[in-house]
Amino acid sequence: MTTVVKPPVRAARQAGPVRAEKRTGMGFRHRLRRDWPLLLMVLPVIVLLGLFHYFPTLGNVIAFQDYSPYAGIRGSDFIGFANFSRMFSEPAFWKAVANTLSITAVQLVFFFPIPIGLALLLNSLLSSKLRNLIQGVVYLPHFFSWVLVVSLFQQMIGGAGLLAQTLRDHGHQAVDLMTKPDTFILLVTAQSVWKDAGWGMIVFLAALSTINPALYEAAAADGANRWRRLWHITLPGLRPVIVLLLILRLGDALTVGFEQFILQRSAVGGNAAEVLDTYVYYQGLLVGDFGYGAAAGLFKGVVGLVLVLLANRFAHLVGEQGVYSRS
C-alpha cells in the first residue's frame, strides 16, 4: 500500500457563490430542496459502507463474548477480557506478532529502497520510448493476483519448478525454495518486490518530475558532478516522499499482506508463515473460535489504528504532510 490519499483541497470555484449563500443564511429546508438529488446519489455508497464496513465493525463486540453461532450476538455471554488474556498467554499469538514484525523489518530493508533506485535509474534514461517500455513491463505484475504470483514462483523455484529441474539435469541436488521455513521471509520479500516494486516507483517518479531542471543546470555550472547533483538536488527533492512513505509503512507495521500468507502457510508451516491476519483467520474461522479470533482481529485493528495515527502525527511533527491533515 504505497498510494497516498489526501482529502482533496476544496475547489476554489466554490468559494464565491457558496460562501455568499451561507452568509445570507440559507435555511435547512432551502438547502434540502436544492441538494436532495446530490444526497440521493451518495445514498447507495453510504448504505453499502454502512452495511459492510461500519455495521460489522460493531460486530467486534463478540471479542468480549463467549460467542456461539447458535446463540448469536444477543444470546452469547459477555466474558469481559477473557479472550484477550488467553490470547496474551498464548505463545502461538506472540509467534504471529513476531513473524509479522520481522517481515515488516525485512521488507523495510530489502523492499523499500528498490522503487527509489528503480525510479532514479528510469529517470536517468534519455530515451522516453525505452522509459515507457520499461515502465510498462515493471508495472504489470502489480495487476496480477497473489494466487498467480505464488503460482509463477512455484513454477520457477518450487520443488517441481524450473530451477529444481535444471539443477537435476546437471546432476545437482534439487532445491525447493517454496517450502523452506528458514528462507520464507526472504521468499515473501522477493515475491513482494517482483509484484509491487515497479508500482511503488510511480510515487517517486512523480516526485522526480517536480524537481526544477534549472537546479541541475545551475549546479552543473557551479561544477557539481553527477553524484553531487544526485546528493544535493535529487535526494533532497525526494526526501518528503521518502519520509512520508517510510512513516506510513511503519504505521502499517502489522499489515504484511494477507493472501500471500494464506496461500503459502500450509506449504511452509505455521511456525514461519503465521502472521497476525492468518492467525485471526485460522483461530476464528477454521478452529471455529469466533470470539477469540475476533479478539485477535480487534487487537490488530486497534494497535494498527494507533500506529497509523502516531505515524501521521509524527509526519506532521517533522514538517511533512501526512495521509490526512486538518483542513
Binding site: V5, P7, R10, A11, Q14, V18, R19, E21, K22, F28, R31, L32, R34, D35, W36, L38, L39, V42, V45, I46, L49, G50, F52, H53, Y54, F55, P56, T57, L58, G59, N60, I62, D277, V280, Y281, G284, L285, F290, G293, A294, G297, L298, K300, G301, G304, L305, V308, L309, V323, Y324
Partner: peptide, 26 residues
Amino acid sequence: RPGSLFHRPLLFVVLLTFLFGPGIIP
C-alpha cells in the same frame, strides 16, 4: 460540491474507511 447539504459528514464517512477495516470474523 463543497457546501452542499451534509457534504462534510458524508465525505467523512467515506474517508474514515481508510483508517480501519471491520475485521475478518465480524
